[in-house]
């Protein structure tokens, strides 16, 4: 099983003066149960691509195969409900989607829509409330009494509670403090490790280096590259040309190399960088 895009294009507002290409002949194949980073500039087509994973947008041409579904321009929306259960999407600032009178009811909303009984949904909701690091005591509070960071977690619990096989997240840690950000990413990494696919849309190259197995790079609606983090961060000139950053550790290593201290292979993370420096200066591995 894999996630397969075959020549997928998407056009916004077709046949109007406002027509705009969102995706342009995108083809790739992703392995399941991996942590995949989707990077690129604002407006590069990342969000458009993301909304194709669960068919909120359907391709204008081309074909998508994932989670046992085939999506073409003519696939009927009503045939996609089971797809939505298997492929879940978390938008930027997802706290905006909260609406129920209690935290628990809000988390249970998704599971109930996907056919769990009230009791099952409630059980799942309680489980995920704790998994995202919130105390059980807030279960019966109104979500609107919580702090911004807590609301974010409730919203994410609400999307993970039906345990989708594929979880797509658009900048889920935006606006969180460093600790909150770290906790959130660890949560997704752990979810992936338990046999799910995680697709993370991000601008943060350190997160790509720290967590991703596979990287998709978008530009102007086209797939620029599909490769591993170490490959994508290897070529500094290429990254600069496409306006992409490097992880801080690679940036630092590049400065060292410029000043006569090359470290190979290139470190992507703080741990790798320290490790290599220590090995270099202390000799031992």
């Amino acid at each position: 099983m894999s996630i397969k895009f075959k020549h997928v294009s998407y056009v916004y507002a077709p046949a109007t003066p406002f027509e705009q290409k969102g995706l342009d002949d995108v083809s790739f194949e992703l392995k399941e149960n991996q942590f995949i980073a989707l990077i690129g500039h604002t407006g590069s087509g990342k969000s458009t691509l993301m909304q194709h994973f669960n068919a909120l947008l359907q391709p204008s041409s081309g074909e998508i195969a994932l989670a046992g579904h085939r999506i073409t321009p003519t696939t009927k929306q009503r045939d996609l409900k089971t797809l939505r259960q298997q492929v879940s999407l978390v938008f930027q600032f997802p706290e905006a989607q909260l609406f129920e009178s209690t935290v628990l009811a809000d988390i249970a909303f998704g599971p109930k829509n996907f056919g769990y009984t009230d009791a099952e949904a409630k059980k799942l909701a309680l489980k995920w409330l704790e998994k995202v690091g919130l105390p059980k005591s807030i279960a019966n509070k109104s979500p609107f009494e919580l702090s911004g960071g807590q609301m974010r977690r409730v919203a994410i619990a609400g999307v993970m509670a039906y345990e989708p096989a594929i979880l797509c997240l658009d900048e889920p840690a935006a606006g969180l403090d460093p600790k909150g950000r770290h906790m959130m990413l660890e949560l997704f990494k752990a979810y992936q490790a338990r046999g799910h696919t995680v697709i993370l849309v991000t601008h943060n190259m350190d997160d790509v280096a720290d967590y991703a197995d596979d990287v998709l790079v978008m530009e102007h609606g086209r797939l620029l590259r599909h490769t591993t983090p170490s490959e994508v961060f290897k070529d500094r000139a290429w990254l600069l040309k496409h306006g992409l950053g490097q992880p801080a550790a690679s940036e630092f290593a590049a400065q060292l190399a410029e000043n006569g201290l090359p470290l190979l292979p290139q470190p992507l993370t703080l741990t790798a960088l320290t490790h290599r420096l220590v090995a270099h200066f202390k000799g031992g591995e």
């Binding site: 909120l56 259960q85 879940s88 999407l89 829509n113 039906y162």
Partner: peptide, 19 residues
């Protein structure tokens, strides 16, 4: 934009606005 975004988010959670 906000309406569109919320609608998409709820659809992703299995909400059905059209039937």
């Amino acid at each position: 934009d906000e309406t569109l975004k919320i609608m998409n988010a709820q659809k992703a959670r299995g909400a059905d606005f059209n039937s």
